[in-house]
Design a protein around this nucleic acid. Sequence first.
DNA 1: GCCAGAAATGTTATACAATATCATTTTGAT
DNA 2: ATCAAAATGATATTGTATAACATTTCTGGC
Lengths: 149, 149
Amino acid sequence: MDAELYLQRAASHCTAQGSRLTPLRRKILQLALAQSGLVKAYQLLHCLQAERGLDNGVVAPPTIYRALDFLVAHGFLHRVDALNAYVVCPHFACEHDGIMLVCDHCGQVQEVDATHSLGSLWQQCHQHGFQPHQRDLVLTGTCQQCQTA
Amino acid sequence: MDAELYLQRAASHCTAQGSRLTPLRRKILQLALAQSGLVKAYQLLHCLQAERGLDNGVVAPPTIYRALDFLVAHGFLHRVDALNAYVVCPHFACEHDGIMLVCDHCGQVQEVDATHSLGSLWQQCHQHGFQPHQRDLVLTGTCQQCQTA
DNA sequence: GCCAGAAATGTTATACAATATCATTTTGAT
DNA sequence: ATCAAAATGATATTGTATAACATTTCTGGC
């Protein structure tokens, strides 16, 4: 994934809807993009701390979590509850009914369109008067490579 | 749900497959059954500690987590990742393709059969060589009552 | 019954995850 | 320029979970 392009499009997306991709948020999104798969909050914390150097103050957890909340709320990241982790969402702008298949062995993420099965799933929820919070579904499991290995 | 009956059936289920519902595990399952919806690990910790009294030693987290792991592995509980919580599974023996709709406002849980939509979901996973860990799906959201309220 | 290995539990300590609270700075609108 | 809102900094604390090792309990073979 081309990080620079992604960041540019993310910035446009934000301004278009009146929210702000501040330097801090941008930086953290950039760090997340540098990962190939899962990103963890405290990992970002350490990265950011390292970048700032020892003299430039300490990065505290709320700094990270606030940025992550923003990025998730705006669709740039998905949270993987089962692993207390996050993954970049490659197509934040489109309306996508997708599933993200997260391998909890190697951390790789595979995206799959699932308009059909998810459609009937959400429909079923609504039939029971239930308003699900998630639009996309994040599933954990074992990917092909890790099964054979 | 009749807790005594449930515990009896759970015990049978365990012996039938050569695993042991020990007094500790049984106790924790019983505590979980006493809740109407979500149960949290440290809540169980405090309950168990209270039951044992102050003189009978201290209950430590691993005691709880090991029991919870067992109960989840054997299908008596489901873990709700999004909330770091657990819910009792009312029908552990049946092969059930169900979704559990967990209201993160009031904690109530609603079970819905979703053989169709889940079937196509799991099928899609396998088509991509992905082996999901979950059989049931646990979704968080807002229930009907909490929407109107 | 007795013993050896396995399973379960106890114990201590620590790592990881997340939030509450309040102070300070930056931003955008008037 | 000023004010209010948004964002960030800073401090402290709570909640969640596991590692590592000791001890006890159970089980099957003798």
